[in-house]
């Protein structure tokens, strides 16, 4: 039931995000299904997704695994105080490590927080995750001034992004 007045011109990023944030349908033609829902062509959907991948607004399209269900129960947020003039180069190297899923640079907060490099590390036990942290520590070398692992002990809330007033989607990662 495509409305002829709804053309590709009204495929806004917001509409595409809202239509896909719950995940792609498990049907043989997921992009065509989303396009039909939005009243646009399938090419409009895939072209837009491709463009958003190219410009970095979409990091990736893929399966979002639940690390916990795969046995990766020791998920630590490692935080590091790294010399400012080395942190870009070293942060990129940390991000390349296979057990690091996310790596970010964040600001210091004077008097409260001195760690700037954040790397999420996944292991099947705290022993394994601690060993991964030791690998990062060694990589950071003499640029490192301090670090800690913050293990999550409880998930108190976990919902997907809400952009269009829809029900939150459950995310697992």
């Amino acid at each position: 039931m495509t409305d002829p007045l709804r053309t590709e011109a009204v495929l806004t990023d917001q509409a595409l995000i809202a239509a896909t944030e719950g995940g792609l349908p498990l049907s043989p033609t997921p992009y065509a299904d989303i396009a039909a829902r939005l009243g646009v062509s399938e090419a409009a959907v895939t072209d837009r997704l491709r463009a958003m991948l190219a410009d970095g607004r979409i990091r990736r399209i893929g399966a979002v695994p639940n690390h916990y269900r795969l046995g990766y129960t020791a998920n630590g947020m490692t935080v590091w105080d790294v010399a400012d003039d080395r942190v870009m180069e070293l942060g990129a190297a940390v991000g390349q490590l296979p057990f690091v899923s996310h790596c970010y640079l964040r600001p210091r907060v004077p008097g409260l927080w001195s760690y700037t490099l954040f790397a999420m590390v996944h292991g099947r036990s705290r022993t394994e995750t601690d060993a991964h942290a030791a690998t990062i520590r060694a990589l950071l070398g003499d640029a490192l001034r301090g670090g800690e692992i913050l293990y999550s002990t409880r998930v108190l809330k976990k919902t997907g992004i809400r952009t269009a007033g829809r029900q939150p989607v459950k995310e697992t990662s």
Binding site: D13, G23, I58, E171
Partner: peptide, 15 residues
């Protein structure tokens, strides 16, 4: 429960 969804992972700032 191994995969929550298949879909786009949006960059911070995109949304």
């Amino acid at each position: 429960g191994v995969v929550g969804r298949i879909g786009a992972v949006w960059a911070q700032g995109a949304v």
